[in-house]
Every structure is written in C-alpha cells, then in structure tokens.
C-alpha cells in the first residue's frame, strides 16, 4: 500500500508542481498572483483534445500520440499565456498589485465562460482520450500504468530543464536578477519585454502540460477544472515560498504527499482533505507574512 500511495503522491505532485511553477514565476517577476493560470491549464487540455480529434491521433501508436498531445498542449498553452500577458498584463506592470489580481480574475472568468458558452457542449464534461486504455504493470503490490511512468519521466525532465533554464541560461539569470530587484536589473540592461514573454510562455506551457496530464490520467475534462487546480497549484507555490522555482517544485510534491497521507491513512480522511489543504495554505501564508515582516 505504501508503494502505491507514494506513486499516487508523485503523480499528483507532478501536476501540482507543474502548476505551481507558473504561479511562482509570475509572482517572482511581476508580483502577480495570476488566477487565470488555472484556465490556461484547462485550455491546454481542451486544445490537446481538439488536436486529437482533428488529426485522428488514435491511428498513431499510443506513446507517440501521447507525446504529441503533451507537446501541443504545452505549445498552445504557452502561446495563449503570452497572448494573455500581451493583452491583459503588459502596460499595467506598474499598477497596484490589487489591480493585477483583479485583471487576472477577470481573464480567468472570460476564458472559463468562453469555453462553457462557445465550445459545442462546452458546459458538459468532455471525454479525454486515454491512448494506453487499461494497460497496467504490476510490481509487487504496486500497479503502474504506462502514462504514469511517462508523466513521472516528464516531471523529472521538467525539474532538470527548469533548473538548467533558471541557473544556466541568460534568460534564467535575468529572471533571477529581476525577482531580486527589478529596477536594478533593468538598469543593468535586462530586457524586460523578453523576460516577461519567456516567463509567461514557460509558466503557461507547464500549466498546459499539467492539463494534458490530468486529461490523460483521469479521462475526462470540464470547463471549470481550472478553479480547483488553480487553487491547489497556488497553494503549492505558497508552501514553497512564492517566487522560488525550486520551492514551487517541492511545494507541489509536499502538498500531494499531505493529501495522499490524509486520504490514505486517516479514517474518512478523504472527506476532510480539502479543508486540511487550505488550513495548510493559511499556515503557510502566515509563516510567509511573518518572514516578510522580519526581512
């Protein structure tokens, strides 16, 4: 049971982490708590679903189909993220934090309701293709599915890739500089526009990947799936200390492990899972506040 629960937590944690990275990047650079991020996640899944049917990907081998879905979901979510940045957040970068927050809530509502209203049957759940169907592998008492293995591999690649990106590239250096002190970084010649585009592209693409992972793993997506996912991703980012990419990655897994522990090992724990998660959020915020005060 422990092995299985660990696998469950890793799987859930990968989705949360992928979402948390976006939240943390946006906050680190712009002080923006981007509540539209959950909708980017949802749209990544919807656009992958569209591609699957448009290109009849069921003809392809499952692994290839899955990789195409994942890459397309990332690409489309990334592009959408940049579009959102250009339209909703650029030019208001210096406006009060509250204004940014409100804008992100507005964008979130617009995206969500557009899917519900303008996509055929948009308010209903949509079945998401599961290319591997019910193939499973059993090791001891732990059951694996091919997509779980693939997604864990993806999550590992994401962690390594992000590390490389943040610590080994110029953009990464700029991001780190920007999140330390924006104005000083600008004076040193950091290109604010490029950093902003990259941050929104990468953050949103990871959100899109999380959306596709959710769709493939659970086989169904719905227009309002971003609300909860967004709250969970944000919680993970807060647990990891908003603004720190490594923290967000760890926060996602910490949150998932907490959820799995409470569901798996406390009698009737599943009923109290979300309550518990948000108690953790409140505590994490309180600690963060205190840390902020003493800084």
């Amino acid at each position: 049971m422990l092995g299985q629960q660990l696998l469950n937590a890793l799987m859930l944690g990968s989705v949360y982490s992928a979402l948390a990275v976006g939240f943390t990047l946006f906050f680190g650079i712009f002080n923006l708590i981007n509540f539209a991020h959950g909708e980017i996640y949802m749209l990544g899944a919807f656009s992958a679903l569209w591609l699957y049917h448009a290109l009849s990907l069921e003809r392809l081998p499952p692994l290839l189909a899955l990789l195409i879905l994942l890459l397309w979901g990332m690409l489309s979510a990334g592009v959408l993220g940049v579009v959102v940045e250009r339209t909703a957040f650029r030019g208001v970068r210096h406006s009060p934090v509250l204004m940014l927050l409100l804008r992100s809530v507005a964008v979130s509502l617009i995206l969500r309701e557009s899917i519900a209203l303008f996509v055929p049957n948009g308010a209903n759940p949509h079945m998401f293709p599961t290319p591997f169907a019910q193939t499973t592998y059993v090791v001891g008492s732990t059951v694996f599915t091919p997509e779980k293995i693939l997604f864990l591999g993806f999550a590992l690649a994401m962690v390594i890739g992000l590390h490389f990106w943040i610590y080994r590239t110029n953009i990464g250096k700029w991001i780190r500089a920007g999140s330390e002190d924006w104005e000083a970084a600008q004076m040193m010649g950091v290109n604010i526009g490029r950093v902003s585009t990259w941050v929104f592209f990468v953050g949103s693409a990871l959100g899109g990947a999380a959306g596709v992972m959710t769709g493939v793993t659970y086989g169904s997506i719905i227009y309002n799936m971003g609300i909860w996912a967004g709250l969970k991703g944000f919680t993970a980012a807060v647990i990891g200390g908003l603004g720190h990419v490594r923290g967000a990655l760890i926060g996602g897994y910490v949150l998932a492990i907490l959820e799995v522990l409470i569901t798996g090992y406390i009698p009737s724990g599943s009923a109290y899972r979300d309550l518990f998660v948000f108690v953790v959020l409140v505590i994490a915020l309180a600690i963060r506040n205190r840390a902020g005060e003493t800084r």
């Binding site: 299985q4 629960q5 469950n8 937590a9 799987m11 859930l12 959710t214 793993t217 659970y218 169904s220 309002n224 799936m225 909860w228 959820e259 799995v260 569901t263 798996g264 009698p267 009737s268 724990g269 599943s270 009923a271 979300d274």
Partner: peptide, 14 residues
C-alpha cells in the same frame, strides 16, 4: 466508509 467531493478527479489515494 469515506467521502469525496463532486468535481474530484483523483481517487487513487482513496
């Protein structure tokens, strides 16, 4: 016995 919530997707731990 246990409870989940309408809208939940991940039941693996449960």
């Amino acid at each position: 016995e246990d409870s989940y919530h309408v809208g939940d997707k991940d039941f693996s731990a449960l």
